[in-house]
Design a protein around this nucleic acid. Sequence first.
DNA 1: ATATATATGTATCAATCGATCCGTATATGA
DNA 2: TCATATACGGATCGATTGATACATATATAT
Lengths: 215, 215
Amino acid sequence: MARTGRPREFDRDKAIDAATALFWAQGYEPTSLTQLKSCMGNISPASFYAAFGSKEALFREVVQRYLETYGQVMAPLWDESLSPREAIERTLHGSARMQSARAHPTGCLVVCGASNCSPENEPVQALLAAERQRTRTGIRACVERAIANGELNASPATDVLPDILTTFFHGMTCEARDGMRPDTLDAAVTSLLTLWDLNAVKRGTAKRPKKKLTD
Amino acid sequence: MARTGRPREFDRDKAIDAATALFWAQGYEPTSLTQLKSCMGNISPASFYAAFGSKEALFREVVQRYLETYGQVMAPLWDESLSPREAIERTLHGSARMQSARAHPTGCLVVCGASNCSPENEPVQALLAAERQRTRTGIRACVERAIANGELNASPATDVLPDILTTFFHGMTCEARDGMRPDTLDAAVTSLLTLWDLNAVKRGTAKRPKKKLTD
DNA sequence: ATATATATGTATCAATCGATCCGTATATGA
DNA sequence: TCATATACGGATCGATTGATACATATATAT
């Protein structure tokens, strides 16, 4: 049964998409209610607050939407049907291309969405920090699974491999924002994964590139 | 000869240091004049504007100060008395420890000082972006010098090496801000540099670690 | 002593911030 | 038809933003 009351005159989903683009490009704090209402189709303050509650509540919906769409480039991290190497590879390549694509703001909303924040908006910071931590955990789990699988050697190098991958991953936001091209970022990912292969257990059927590692 | 007029009642240098800490921790836009005046010793608006001109002008002085102090961890990049490998190594290790030190805000001011910015403050963004570009150029120059010196092979892997190093370098800000410990970040740098050594030209006197690469 | 130059304290500016109130419009349910 | 529920337009809230005005205080220069 349809909901009672006067129907909304704007598309709530499209409004969230528009807000996502704005928050993604500018970050949480610099994005004003005026800008938001404007990009959502010049809706009134009353409509805004009735539909979303507050700026922070809208941002939380935006993050949720982002994670369900663009953020799905990270999904391979938690897909245990993939080999750990493939999971990492797909995640990094996918993220590199997504973050540097020109169809939307560059970089990662989770990394740069609230990187400059007043103390009063610490909860917003914390929301994104928790999500970044989830990524770290996912990357580390892949490496540990590879060690458990016998795909990677256990060694000091594989101990720090998650930190390297994570640091590089988070650095892509800065590079993409500063204009690095998708192909360039993608090639960097490919080469970085040499660090994985260096520590791969050598077998007849090992997943190693056919070309020389250094080429 | 001493300057005419009533002398300033606060220490301009210390005020800039205090402002640096604040801008570093919060970023340009979220840092208010009220906070700045407060941390500078409760100076008045008149004193502030007489001494610094504007919030943006102060920020430019702060960036200058930062580059001359903390930012000097990057100096090896342009020190041609060092081998390229040493220059990169010292820069990354020094930056890793500086950015994660607890004596001051974590991360790099140049990376995160204006990462969330309204369109109206684009010049501030541009100031830091130009500095980041300078870093990229410096890193690339080191790699190219190493190739010219014969320390590194010219190859697709060395072509993308600057991009990998730069991306990792810029990612350290996120990791440091999220609490990564100095030793951890430092160890990641050490391991990342394996990518350099993989492409080092092999000679009897080559600068290669004595231990196995993967350890 | 007087002029000049700079700094300070206080009050205040216009603009914008996120958010709320109120009267009205438009839908459904009984 | 009338009650209920939701959305809308527009005015406005108090707080804060970066910045300025003006009178006064304190130094040097002549």
